[in-house]
Design a protein around this nucleic acid. Structure first.
Length: 301
RNA sequence: GGUCACGUAGCCAAGUGGUCCAAGGCGGCAGUUUGCAAAACUGUUAUUCGUGGGUUCGACUCCCACCGUGACCU
């Protein structure tokens, strides 16, 4: 006896592929609400640089409700764990209201956490442990990991300090990092992917950078900095914030910054595709009507 | 027209007679990915040093010619 799982539609794709526009149109058609799966759009005050496109959701009665956008202040840390928790709540509420949840975004890890129902190892980021890790040598870290969690030791990138540190953090907390797993899915998901040939993709990205610059992206970042967000923190909010903050500090000339930013986003889009490529369950579509057909069929089942 | 300098991968660039059958960086390509993920990390990318000749046991490295680029001079 298999219980019927709640249905979840996911719209994913690299940056600038038009996910929001498509998702809003689909939400209109299928009585849906949108849950953003984007690690940056959660932040209040970062609109242009994160591409929130809030106008796209419509106004008044026609407005499509969205979730996980503008939910925290820039000083607050966000991560997959929080995402999974909040997204699950949002999705369940939408379903309870008799509406269709549409998860939309380009943060592959977040989407996988939902689709594959990641069981994240316990042990949240711990200041004390991180202090301790800061003082340890890499060789000692690897030695410790070998003792505490052989499985992870064998698998882990030996040069990726960030990953090694997290794994050890979990281990020092008394759990094995390798205990994380994919549990049985809790949603019946339909994943729809948007993609374009690379040269087309890159042109879209370039255009979007130019548009955002005209929309006042630099001003947005100046304003954030005026609100006491350090340059260091600013760099962590994504490519636009990183390159523009460096430009504002005189590290790059204007055109140089624009070129570097565009290239960095091209590379990012490629990384996104590398992530998505692994999931063979994604239906890659060419246009809206293909998406509509897939959803119609999916919702009927 | 003359003088000088330079010409190493898609780009930048080290190397000035023998572990150079050519360092490094960027870009490209491929990939990893379970509490920072627009992050962090990995692999890969020149049978060859502008072209042709010469010197030498041996040349990217020295000599000559040619082509190209730049600067200066007339």
């Amino acid at each position: 006896m298999k219980k019927k799982l709640p249905k979840l539609i996911i719209i994913l794709g690299p940056t600038a592929s038009g996910k929001t526009k498509l998702a809003v149109a689909l939400a209109r058609k299928f009585n849906g609400e949108i849950v953003s799966a984007d690690s940056r759009q959660v932040y209040i005050g970062m609109d242009i640089g994160t591409g929130k496109d809030l106008k796209e959701y419509g106004k008044g009665e026609k407005r499509i409700p969205y979730h996980l956008i503008d939910i925290i202040l820039p000083k607050t840390e966000f991560n997959v764990f929080k995402f999974k928790k909040k997204a699950t709540v949002a999705i369940n509420n939408i379903t309870a209201r008799g509406k269709t949840p549409l998860v939309v975004g380009g943060t592959g890890l977040y989407i996988s956490a939902l689709v594959d129902n990641y069981q994240l190892p316990l042990g949240k980021p711990d200041k004390k442990i991180r202090q301790k890790l800061k003082k340890m040598k890499i060789a000692d870290k690897l030695e410790a990991l070998k003792k505490l969690d052989m499985m992870t030791y064998e698998k882990i990138d030996k040069n990726n300090l960030r990953r090694i540190d997290r794994a050890l953090e979990v281990c020092f907390n008394g759990q094995k990092f390798s205990s994380g797993s994919k549990k049985k899915p809790i949603y019946n998901t339909l994943q729809i992917g948007l993609k374009f040939p690379k040269n087309v993709m890159n042109k879209k990205i370039d255009k979007r950078v130019d548009d955002r610059l005209l929309e006042g992206m630099i001003g947005e970042i100046k304003k954030l900095h005026a609100q006491k967000i350090s340059w260091r923190r600013m760099e962590s909010f994504g490519l636009e914030y990183r390159f523009i903050s460096r430009y504002l500090r005189g590290k790059y000339k204007n055109q140089e910054m624009i070129n570097l930013l565009k290239t960095a986003i091209h590379q990012f889009a490629k990384r996104q595709m590398t992530w998505f490529k692994r999931d063979t369950k994604i239906h890659w579509i060419k246009n809206k009507s293909q998406a509509e057909k897939l959803i119609k069929k999916f919702l009927k089942k």
